[in-house]
Simulated assay, not measured.
Amino acid sequence: MATTTRLGLPLLKAGQAQKEIWHNEALALIDLAVQATVTAVGLDEPPAVPVPGACWIVGSNPTGAWRGQARALAGWTEGGWRFVTPREGMAAWHQGTRSIVRYAEGQWRAAAAVVPAAGGATVDAEARATLAGLIAGLRELGLIA
């Protein structure tokens, strides 16, 4: 079967029978990968009762139905499990932490945590207020944890 280079989506062939099957499979995979939203990151065992449309990032040592799909996006659909192999730079919204996770150098990485300034001998209230506002805004956007 011929597939696309980046996401491995199935391609149709001229004169191919039952094209709707391959077309629907490609749409199901696109639905998982584009603007991905995940329930959890790094799970090795599939949930017992997944809900259609829910998506997870598989851990490093998957078991059961996820065996062989380390670090993939795993989505439960009406037709069962579907997987998308991550590509460098791919991002997903992690519902649990309300932040972005990004795939880089073979790993899913959470947004960096930023600790607000505290203490110190010299206090500049305006600078601290500005930094606190900036940090809050970045957290609101999910760019940092």
Rank of each mutant, 00 (worst) to 15 (best):
G106K: 00
A91N: 02
V41S: 15
A72M: 03
G80Y: 01
A40W: 12
A118S: 12
R82L: 05
A132K: 09
G64Y: 12
D124E: 03
E105T: 08
A118Q: 12
M1W: 09
P46G: 05
W56D: 02
T37E: 11
G96L: 13
V34Y: 01
P46N: 01
Q107M: 02
Q16P: 02
L7F: 07
V101R: 00
G133N: 02
G80R: 12
E45Y: 08
I135A: 15
V51Q: 14
I144Q: 03
H94G: 08
E88Q: 07
L7C: 00
K13Y: 14
E45N: 13
T130K: 12
A118D: 07
T4D: 11
L12V: 08
V123T: 02
N24C: 05
A125Q: 03
V34I: 09
A132S: 15
A118H: 04
G53V: 00
N24E: 10
A121L: 13
A92S: 11
Q16I: 06
Q69V: 01
L138A: 07
L29W: 07
A104T: 03
A117L: 15
L12T: 13
T130I: 15
A129Y: 02
G68W: 04
I21N: 08
V49G: 12
M1A: 14
P50L: 02
T85S: 00
P62C: 06
A104M: 10
P86A: 05
V84Y: 00
T122I: 09
R71D: 05
H23M: 09
T77E: 01
P47C: 06
Y103H: 10
G8S: 12
G42L: 14
R128I: 00
A65H: 13
W66C: 13
R102H: 13
P46W: 10
I100M: 11
W22N: 08
D124I: 11
I21S: 06
L7Q: 05
A127Y: 07
S99P: 13
A74E: 09
A26S: 03
A145I: 14
A113Q: 13
V84P: 00
G133W: 13
I144K: 01
V123N: 00
A2T: 14
G120L: 15
W76V: 00
G80E: 02
R128V: 04
E126H: 14
W81M: 02
N61L: 06
A111E: 01
E20K: 14
G15S: 08
P116W: 15
A145Q: 13
L7W: 05
W108M: 00
H94N: 14
A65Y: 01
A91F: 01
R109S: 15
E25Q: 15
L134T: 06
C55V: 09
V34P: 07
G8L: 15
H23S: 05
A127V: 07
Q18H: 05
L138E: 13
W22C: 02
W76D: 04
W93L: 02
Q18K: 14
A92H: 02
G79T: 05
A145P: 01
I135Y: 15
T5I: 02
V115H: 12
A54E: 06
A92W: 06
H23G: 11
A110D: 08
A110K: 06
M90N: 04
L131T: 12
L27D: 07
V123R: 00
P10Y: 04
A111W: 12
A113Y: 10
P116I: 03
A70W: 04
Y103A: 02
T4E: 07
P62K: 03
S99A: 15
A136Q: 15
